[in-house]
Design a protein around this nucleic acid. Structure first.
Lengths: 341, 341
DNA sequence: CTGTTAGCGCCTTCAA
DNA sequence: TTGAAGGCGCTAACAG
C-alpha cells in the first residue's frame, strides 16, 4: 500500500498540515528548520510520494503542459513506395526533433510532465478538463490548422508551433522561413550567381511556409537589384531555365532539391560544376543528395524549446508573443562559384 | 467559471449522482433512457466537462499511459558537422515514428492521454504518483537501459520498447533484428551470392541489436551451408575482403552501408555491378544512398503500437509478454545477381 | 430507477 | 511555529 501524508505525519510526530507545508515545494510557510528536516527524512525513508490527483484537485493546477501533435502522421507504411513515403519520413524526423526539444525544455523549466493528446477527432473542450495548465499545438505545415480556430478563447494559454497565422490571443513560434530562404539566395549571390531559379510550389502551393520561402527568395534577389524568376515546379521547365541561362537553383525543400538534381543529372548537367543547388530543411539524408546538398537547417527542436519557454512565460503572466527562429546555412558540396559560360 | 456537475444536475432536475452515472462512460448503471438523454443534452448545452483531477482522485485511476523516451536525444546541433549529427537525426526519425505509433494506438484504444516524462535524472518513484496507470519505456538501443533495473517491482505495469533484455515482470516489445538480418542475407543468397560479408561492429559493438543482426547473418549463412565471415568494420578491410572474393556486403545499418559504399566507390568498385550492398533500418535518405539502397525496414511505429497494445492488455489482467516485430526487405537498386568474375 | 451520504488525499485558511 | 477543520469535484455504496 502506498504511503499517505498522514502516515508521514505520524511517523514524524507532526500533523499532516505540517508535512504538507514542508513538502509542497513552496518555501514561504513558516516551519522550524529542525521540524522540516525531520519531516523530509521521514518522508524519504518511507518512500512517500505526494498523490498527484489529490494535489491537482486541491490546488486546481497541474504544472503539466499539453501537447497536440497535429503533425504526427499515420504509422502505416506506404506500400506503393515499398517503405514509408519519403515525406512521411521527413515529417517524422521533425516530430522527433520537436519531441526532443519539448522534453529538454520541460526538463530545464521543471515541467513535471507533458500530456500528449492522441489527436484524431479531438474535441477542443477536452482541453479544459483540468489536465493541463497550458497547451502547445504543433501545426501541420502542409495542411491547415483547423484546431487553432476553435481555441480562440480557451481557458488556458495556448502557443502554436510551426505556423505564423493564429487567432489573437494565441502565441506563435515558428521558423523564419523567409529569412532562411534569404540565406540560401545570398549564399548563391556571394558565389556570383545572378540567374537563380526557385524550384517548388512556392506561394502557389497554398502552403504557408513554402510561400514564405518563395517570398524570401524574391526579396533577396530584389534587394540585390535582380529580378526573381517565376517559381518552377517541373523538371522539364527547370532544364529549359538552365538552357536559358540559370546557373543556380534554390529548391523549396531538400526533397525538391533531390528531384531537381534527378532532372539535372538525367540531362547530363553536373552539380555544382554546371548548376549550383541549394535546398531547405537539412533533412536526414541531405548528406547523400546531389553528392552532399548545401541547404538551410530548419531548427525544429529549437522551435519546440522556444514554444515551451513561451508557454511557461504566459503561465507567469506575460502576454502572447511571436517568436521567429533563424535557420542557418549548411554548406556542403552542391554549390560552387559561377563558371563563365 | 467552469460548469460543475452540480449545476448540470440542477439544470436537468436530477441529482449529481445521476449525472455522474450518465456521463461516467460506464454503461452498467441503471438510468432511465429519457433521463439519460436529458442529462446529456443539458450537459452539452452547458458545455460541461468533468473535472479530470477530481475523477482521478475518486476513482484512483487515470486511464493515462506514461511514456519515458530514454532515446530522445539532445536538441543541440552538433556544430562539428555543421548540422545535426547523422546518427542523431536517425534517432529522431525513430523517436518521431514511435510517437506516431503511440499516438495512433492510443487513439484506437481510447487512451485519453499519454504522459511524457521529460527524462533527465528521473527518479523511479515519480512513476507512482498516480499520474499514470501503466508505463512504456522506450530504451535507447545504443546505451544500456539503467532505468528498467529500478522498475522491477513498480506498482503499475511496465512495458519496455526497443530491447529484449528486461527484468522479470516487465513486458517487452522489440523489432526482430535477427530475423531482419536473415531477410537481407537470404535476399543475397537468392541472387546467388556465396561470399557475403557482414559490415559493422556486430556482437563486438556491445549493442544488443547489432549483436542480433550479426547473429541473424551468421545463422542464415550457416543454414545455407556457408561459412560466415568475421565482422568487418573498416573500409580497408572491406576492400581486402572484396579482393578476396566477397561479392556482397550486408551492413549492420544504413549509415554503415553509406560508409561501405563510400569505401567501395572510392576504390572504383561499382554497386551493384561489382558488389551488392544491403543495409538495415530504411532510414530517411536510404533512397539516396548508393543510388538507392536495398535495406531492411525497421518497423518502429509498429513497435510502438504493439507496445501500447501490450500495456493495455496488461491493464486488463494479462501477463507480461514478449512481442517481436518482423522487419521486411525493401528492394531498391544496390543489389544484383552475382556476376561471374 | 434515483437520491443521499461519505469520502478519495491533499493544501490552505484560521485559530491557538 | 504548529494543528484542526474544511473542502476541491467527483463517484461508489447504499438506501429508498
Amino acid at each position: 500500500m502506498k504511503v499517505r501524508i498522514k502516515e508521514v505525519a505520524v511517523a514524524a510526530g507532526v500533523s499532516a498540515a505540517t508535512v504538507s507545508k514542508v513538502l509542497s515545494g513552496r518555501a514561504d510557510y513558516p516551519v522550524h528548520a529542525r521540524t522540516a528536516e525531520r519531516v523530509r527524512r521521514v518522508a524519504r525513508d518511507l518512500g512517500y510520494v505526494p498523490d498527484i490527483a489529490a494535489r491537482h484537485l486541491r490546488t486546481r493546477q497541474t504544472g503539466q503542459l499539453g501537447v497536440v501533435l497535429e503533425a504526427v502522421g499515420p504509422s502505416e507504411p506506404d506500400s506503393l513506395l515499398g517503405g514509408l513515403s519519403v515525406s512521411h519520413a521527413v515529417r517524422r524526423t521533425f516530430d522527433g526533433a520537436i519531441m526532443a526539444g519539448l522534453s529538454e525544455a520541460a526538463r530545464e523549466l521543471d515541467v513535471p510532465a507533458l500530456v500528449v493528446y492522441p489527436g484524431g477527432d479531438l474535441d477542443v473542450r477536452s482541453f479544459l478538463d483540468g489536465r493541463v495548465d497550458g497547451l502547445l499545438v504543433s501545426c501541420d505545415p502542409l495542411r491547415g490548422h483547423a484546431l487553432l480556430r476553435g481555441l480562440t478563447d480557451a481557458p488556458v494559454p495556448i502557443v502554436a508551433l510551426w505556423t505564423q497565422v493564429a487567432p489573437a490571443g494565441i502565441g506563435v513560434v515558428d521558423v523564419d522561413h523567409a529569412y532562411g530562404a534569404g540565406l540560401a539566395v545570398r549564399h548563391l549571390l556571394e558565389l556570383r550567381h545572378r540567374r537563380i531559379a526557385f524550384y517548388g510550389g512556392g506561394a502557389g502551393s497554398g502552403v504557408e511556409h513554402f510561400a514564405q520561402r518563395e517570398a524570401g527568395y524574391r526579396q533577396a534577389l530584389e534587394h540585390a537589384g535582380l529580378t526573381p524568376l517565376p517559381a518552377i515546379h517541373d523538371g522539364g521547365r527547370l532544364l529549359q531555365a538552365v538552357r536559358d541561362g540559370v546557373t543556380a537553383v534554390f529548391a523549396e525543400t531538400d526533397l525538391g532539391a533531390a528531384a531537381a538534381f534527378h532532372a539535372l543529372h538525367g540531362a547530363g548537367l553536373r552539380v555544382p560544376a554546371d548548376v549550383s543547388l541549394v535546398g531547405f530543411d537539412d533533412i536526414q539524408g541531405a548528406e547523400y543528395i546531389a553528392g552532399g546538398l548545401t541547404t538551410v537547417y530548419h531548427p525544429a527542436a529549437e522551435m519546440a524549446v522556444a514554444g515551451v519557454q513561451s508557454l511557461v512565460a504566459r503561465l507567469e503572466g506575460e502576454s502572447p508573443r511571436t517568436t521567429l527562429l533563424p535557420p542557418r546555412l549548411i554548406q556542403r558540396r552542391s554549390t560552387a562559384p559561377v563558371q563563365g559560360r
